[in-house]
Design a protein around this nucleic acid. Structure first.
Lengths: 241, 241
DNA sequence: TCTCATGCTTGATCCAAGTCAAAGTCGCTA
DNA sequence: TAGCGACTTTGACTTGGATCAAGCATGAGA
């Protein structure tokens, strides 16, 4: 295989991960052409439908993924079945917890999704070879930590109404990052998922959604299509800040 | 100064951060002698008493620290004053959020503490020069992320009793990492801090502590001295797992 | 077209934790 | 050694969100 690598002219080496394609802004852009070629031999695109469990809590980790499309939910389950979603990952996030053999939580596709799957061993070798890749993943970990701590404030100190508004603001931010006035998007989560993310019950989520609707802060169609006439106002009811 | 560096024999260069000292297991052990010498010119030991604010939410970050002794609490405050502690840092943790000019939360000494303070610019240069240092901080970030997500489960899905038990187990783990049966420790937090960490009120924390006491799961003296006769049993009432 | 499953909403009731208020406890200083 | 202030506990009452129990859409399959 080494021989095969060497005879490739550098300009013929694909400059982006074959499975991910050029638009993808994940980790691939930090790799050298040689590393990409190596990765191309092992990475593969995978399409999954909503509800597919990608890995279970406590299972062995064999791969990492770039998320190309869709939303993945990360959740923890207690012995008696209580569940908490501890993170949402949107394209083009990198998904996975480097340097740990066993997953501390479950990952499940919240929507239909597409992934670029990278074998664990290969990626970990690349991290040790490319400090730019390492620092990129370091930065993603720090961003996720910031987000987790923001959410701790939401879970610990906000009312149900503020929690639901916070979730809508979060999703809106990912759907349309720089929109400040009105915006429209599709909710990637069911009411049950929202409840698990906010530490509430389905019924409470539903009631708060209706209240926000009656207060004119949001419009909803077909349970999932959300229109927010004034994102600032919604952000204020989410707890200001 | 370069001249001064060069005339030092390598064996005379202190192999540990002067301010931190040899026992310290923080970031210093990943640096080369030259880097340590450079760091020694700028790092300084700082003793602070309980209650000292080290940095406020939204303030500019000028330094990072190794925690040599004591406990630091990281907290977020909402506009109306509601507060949530989003992390506790124990010695010998590294404290600080690399690559971000502005602090997203406040840091305050929960107990009397000692720090080894490192200027931001110097440390960030060293991170870019030493991939081992970078990967060490990467790992710390990942560990903090794991802890934050664990705590999200506690905040979102546990009862007040389970929350208080969880906190006691957490502190016990840091006080005496491998003790499984009985253990004793001093609480580094006031009731108000505990409430802010657990998303509860002072009164509820107090009531749950008395209940745990009456149930024989813990003994408390002088509000802060805790004795746990059976850590496993406490861990079970903290929510198993 | 009916039925059944799934997911969402709405209503009635209950309870865990919050709020308000008072009374300990301890250390510090005068 | 009395008095003050900070912290903690305890009690009485209130309330926000959970629980239990119907209803209401929508869509798939028979």
């Amino acid at each position: 295989m080494d021989a095969q690598l060497k005879i490739l002219d550098i300009h013929e080496v694909p400059l982006v991960c074959r499975a991910c394609d050029a638009r993808h802004s994940g980790i691939c852009s930090t790799l050298t052409p040689l590393q990409l070629t190596e990765l191309n031999k092992h990475s593969q695109r995978r399409a999954v439908e909503a509800g597919t469990e990608l890995i279970g809590q406590g299972q062995q980790v064999h791969s990492y993924s770039n998320i190309l499309r869709g939303v993945i939910k990360l959740s923890k389950i207690m012995a008696d079945g209580r569940q908490q979603i501890v993170g949402l990952q949107f394209a083009p996030d990198f998904m996975g917890r480097p340097f740990l053999g066993e997953s501390l939580m479950a990952a499940e596709a919240a929507t239909d999704a597409e992934l670029c799957v990278l074998p664990r061993k290969i990626l970990e070798r690349m991290i040790s070879e490319s400090s730019e890749l390492g620092s990129r993943l370091h930065n993603q970990a720090l961003t996720e930590l910031d987000e987790a701590r923001d959410w701790m404030l939401t879970l610990g100190r906000k009312s149900a109404r503020e929690k639901v508004a916070s979730l809508l603001v979060l999703v809106a931010a990912h759907a349309d990052p720089d929109r400040l006035g009105a915006c429209a998007f599709e909710l990637p989560l069911s009411r049950a998922d929202i409840a698990d993310f906010l530490g509430l019950t389905i019924e409470t989520v539903s009631r708060q959604m209706t209240k926000l609707r009656k207060d004119g802060l949001i419009h909803i169609e077909n349970n999932r299509q959300v229109y927010v006439p004034d994102l600032d106002k919604l952000a204020v009811t989410a707890g200001g800040d």
